[in-house]
Every structure is written in structure tokens, then in C-alpha cells.
Design a binder for these strands. Structure first.
Lengths: 156, 156
DNA sequence: CTCTGAATGAGACTCATTATCAAAACTGAG
DNA sequence: CTCAGTTTTGATAATGAGTCTCATTCAGAG
């Protein structure tokens, strides 16, 4: 009897989670949406629309856009708008652990990085203080480091 | 004999700085650009293009866009793209001290907030460490708190 | 199986931003 | 001051990421 979670378990948990989130808003977890979530889950980095369509060429661009919108509203997907060009999309917090981004200003790719838990807690505490002072009701924070990725800096 | 800087001094210092930045790239500090910088300097918050044009109606939208681009390349202006709708623009770091943003997800306004120096230093240190580990050459970081502003949360 | 509302996909459309280009303004040399 | 060579301007056209439309298809309840 297993009491550790295998990758397969995780896979089904993810989809169960998405299914629940969608159905509570009267949305269906269709094949297309399933494929979209798979594409995002299998990628190491946040993806743009063209990248998603390249990975899953059977998905129609207009449907992908619509479904990203639906999934975003349901808290399954995060949209990252780091300026010029396409937005990037990734799975949201419960599916992907809290993290931040290294944004390459020259090629536009985005890499995930995780901050020390202690620092993250300290940061959250201070941000909540600031927000409170401004009567601002915080939902989430985003911390991006902009610069040049290894590839662009030193094209081997 | 004064040895403290007055608001007027600051005003001229700002413009001297912009002038220098522009001229090192063979650009002129024209009246239109001067007005644009004034509009940004006089505002408490980062502005969108329609807001800039409303403040300074004699500026042509196409010129403002072009000049924001020029000023951005010269490191005088920062562009903030927080998703849907217009981008926001503010003066860059040497003219405005380092700060972060409270982004209202419902009305889109952006407010500036400053973090404790100590925390900021700690954050920078950790980010540099992460960047180094990924062979990423950092330029600057951005930390935005997304949520609902006082006005949207509680429309008096 | 049937029925109903949700989802799909191709294409039209929006609209923030960028590019174009002729006219105007500025700069430095003579 | 004037001329030549730039840069800037501003109205307008073009771009393009993202959204909307709508007829068709599909999923799930009964």
C-alpha cells in the first residue's frame, strides 16, 4: 500500500482540481481544455499563444485564447504580461508552487525561480502592511527580475 | 548660503539629467519632450497615454508615443505593462526613487509604494544569487502587488 | 436517445501601439 | 543672416495581439 504520491497521482490530482474549479462555475472540462492544461503542465516555462499552438497544433488559436481566459477566471492559469509582444501563460498557484520570474529583455523568454521561504514570508508581511496602509486589498504579488538570459548574453 | 536643495533646484536637476541623457544619444530636448517629462513629474501616479494627453492637450499622441519610446531607451522613463488596456509610464529610477506598485485589477490605476531599505537590500541580494545560479544578467526587478484599490473596494 | 445549454473554430473586428512621410524646426558652419 | 543637413513633428496608415460573432458541434442530464 502506497502512501507517497507518484507523478501519475499528481497528474490526476491536477486534472481533478481543474475539473472542480471549472464545474463550480458551470464550465466543462473538454478535451481542448484538457490538452491546453497538459501543454502548460508539461512545459518548464510559461508559454505564449504561438508556443502553445505549436505544441498542440490541433487546438484553434481562438479557442485557446478563450479557454485561457476561462481558466484564468477560475484561478487555474496565470497571465504574465511582461511588455512587448505576446503574453505568457502558466498554471496558477495551487498547481504550481509560488515562484517568480527571470524575464529576458532581449528574447522574451521567462524562467521560473523560487525564493527562500523565509524571505518570501517576510516580503508578504511587509507588502500586506503597505497595502493595509493604503486601504488596498491584495490578491497576489508578482516579482520579476528583468535582464539578459544566459543564451542571449553569451550565444555559444 | 544655502546648502540644502530646494524644490526648484530639484526641478532643474531633473531637466539637466534628462538633457544629458538625451544628448549623449544625439537627441534633442525639445519643448514637447520637456512638457512630457513635466507631466510625468507632476503626477503622483504612473500615467497612461490618454491621461498624458489630457494633462497636456497640446501634445500629439503619436509624438508622445514616439518620445516615450525615446525616453525609455535613454533610461528616463519606465513602461509598466500590467495587462489589458493601456500601458502606464513613469519617470525612471534616478529621477524617482526605487519603488514598487499597487496595481488595481478592477480599475487599472497604479500607486507607488516604497519598501523598507533593509528588506529591499535583502531581496536584491537573494535575487542576484538566483540570477547568478541561472547565468542570468539582471538589470532591474519589479515587484507589483495586485488587488483592489480603496476606491474600487469601497466606493464611498 | 433526446434535448439544452456550453464549447468550438473560422473569420471579422478592436484598439493600443508603431511605422510612414512630408512639412516644420532646429543647429552649426560660413 | 543664410544655407545645408539633421532631427522632430503630427496626421494618417499599418500592424498585430487579443476579443467577439455566429453557425455548427458536443457533453451531460434525464
Amino acid at each position: 500500500m502506497e502512501n507517497t504520491t507518484t507523478p501519475d497521482d499528481q497528474y490526476f490530482e491536477h486534472h481533478a482540481f481543474v475539473h472542480k474549479r471549472l464545474s463550480t462555475e458551470n464550465h466543462r472540462y473538454t478535451t481542448g481544455r484538457h490538452r491546453l492544461v497538459d501543454a502548460l503542465a508539461e512545459s518548464a516555462q510559461p508559454l505564449t499563444l504561438p508556443e502553445i499552438v505549436e505544441i498542440a497544433p490541433d487546438l484553434a488559436a481562438s479557442s485557446v485564447y478563450r479557454n485561457l481566459e476561462v481558466l484564468e477566471r477560475c484561478g487555474v492559469v496565470n497571465r504574465i504580461t511582461s511588455g512587448g509582444g505576446h503574453a505568457h501563460f502558466e498554471l496558477a498557484e495551487p498547481l504550481l508552487s509560488h515562484h517568480h520570474h527571470l524575464v529576458c529583455v532581449s528574447c522574451g523568454t521567462i524562467e521560473d525561480v523560487r525564493l527562500d521561504d523565509e524571505l518570501e514570508a517576510l516580503l508578504d508581511q511587509n507588502l500586506n502592511l503597505l497595502a493595509d496602509r493604503a486601504s488596498f486589498k491584495p490578491l497576489h504579488h508578482s516579482l520579476d527580475l528583468h535582464g539578459h538570459c544566459a543564451e542571449c548574453e553569451d550565444p555559444a
